[in-house]
Computed example of a mutant assay.
Amino acid sequence: MAAAPPPLERAFGITNIKTRVPFLLDADEADYDAWRELFLTHWQSFDVSGHLDGTLLPANDDDAAWKKRDGLVKLWIYGTLAKDLFKSTVKTGGTSREVWLRLENFFHDNKEARAVQLDHKLRTQEIGDLSIHAYCQELKSIADLMANVDAPVSERTLVTYLPNGLNEKYDNIINVIKHRQPFPTLEQARSMLILEEERLGKPKKVPSHKDESSSSPKGYPMWPQQQFNPWKQMPLSPHPQPGLLGSRPQQQMLVQGTHNNNSNQPQPTMDFASAFNTMTLIDPTDSQWYMDSGATAHLSNTAGSSNTEDSSPQ
Rank of each mutant, 00 (worst) to 15 (best):
L166Y: 07
K169A: 10
K169Y: 08
Y170A: 00
Y170K: 00
D171M: 09
D171A: 09
N172C: 03
I174L: 00
I174Q: 00
N175K: 10
V176M: 02
I177L: 03
K178L: 13
R180F: 01
P182F: 10
F183P: 01
F183W: 04
F183M: 01
L186R: 02
E187R: 15
Q188E: 12
A189P: 07
R190Q: 14
R190G: 02
S191G: 11
M192D: 06
L193V: 11
I194P: 09
E196T: 01
E196V: 00
E197I: 01
E198Q: 15
E198L: 10
R199L: 08
L200S: 09
L200E: 03
L200Q: 14
L200F: 07
K204L: 11
K204C: 07
K204G: 03
V206Y: 12
S208P: 05
S208G: 08
H209E: 06
D211L: 14
S213G: 13
S215A: 14
S215E: 15
S215G: 09
S215K: 13
S216C: 04
S216G: 07
P217Q: 04
K218N: 10
P221M: 11
M222F: 07
P224M: 12
Q225E: 13
Q226G: 06
Q226Y: 06
Q227Y: 08
F228V: 11
F228C: 12
N229Y: 14
K232N: 05
K232C: 00
K232T: 01
K232P: 01
Q233H: 12
M234I: 04
P235K: 15
S237D: 14
P238S: 14
H239D: 06
H239M: 14
P240W: 04
Q241S: 02
Q241A: 05
P242F: 08
P242D: 06
G243R: 08
G243L: 12
L244M: 05
L245C: 02
S247M: 13
